[in-house]
C-alpha cells in the first residue's frame, strides 16, 4: 500500500486515464479543453472559477493545477485568495442555510 493516497506527480499522469478507455477518456478531455477556452467568459475568469471550485471539492490535484495556471496567466495572489473565499463562502453558506431546515423541523415538532 502507498503511504499516502495522493502523490503530486500523479497530476502529470492525468492523461493516462485514456489508456484504459480511450473513447471515453478522449471525449472527456475534448470536453474539458473546450470548457476552458475563452468564450462569453475569458480563459482567465474561468481559471479563477476553477480555482474556487477546486477548493470547494477539495481536490489537491486541481488546487495544484489551477494555482500554477493562475501564476502563468499573471493572476495575482490577492485575486486567487478572493476566489477561494468565494468558494468557501458558498460552501459554508450551503451548510448554514440548512439551519433553516433544522429550525423548521424544530418548530414543527416543538410545543
Amino acid at each position: 500500500m502507498e503511504k499516502t493516497y495522493y502523490k503530486p506527480q500523479d497530476l502529470k499522469k492525468f492523461g493516462d486515464i485514456t489508456n484504459w478507455n480511450k473513447e471515453l477518456g478522449d471525449k472527456f478531455f475534448e470536453y474539458y479543453n473546450a470548457v476552458f477556452e475563452s468564450g462569453a467568459l475569458t480563459a482567465r475568469e474561468k481559471s479563477l472559477i476553477a480555482l474556487a471550485v477546486s477548493h470547494v471539492v477539495q481536490c489537491p490535484y486541481c488546487i495544484d493545477a489551477y494555482t500554477q495556471d493562475g501564476l502563468k496567466r499573471g493572476i495575482e495572489k490577492e485575486e486567487m485568495m478572493e476566489a477561494v473565499h468565494v468558494g468557501a463562502a458558498i460552501k459554508s453558506g450551503a451548510a448554514l442555510v440548512h439551519g433553516v431546515q433544522m429550525m423548521n423541523i424544530h418548530d414543527k415538532l416543538s410545543m
Binding site: S38, A43, R44, Q68, D69, L71, K72, R73, G74
Partner: peptide, 19 residues
C-alpha cells in the same frame, strides 16, 4: 518583455499581451 516571477512557465503570449 515578460518573464515569470517564479518557478513556472509563461502563459499564453497573446492573452498576456492583451492583459
Amino acid at each position: 518583455v515578460y518573464n515569470p516571477a517564479g518557478a513556472f512557465l509563461p502563459g499564453d503570449q497573446k492573452e498576456l499581451e492583451a492583459d
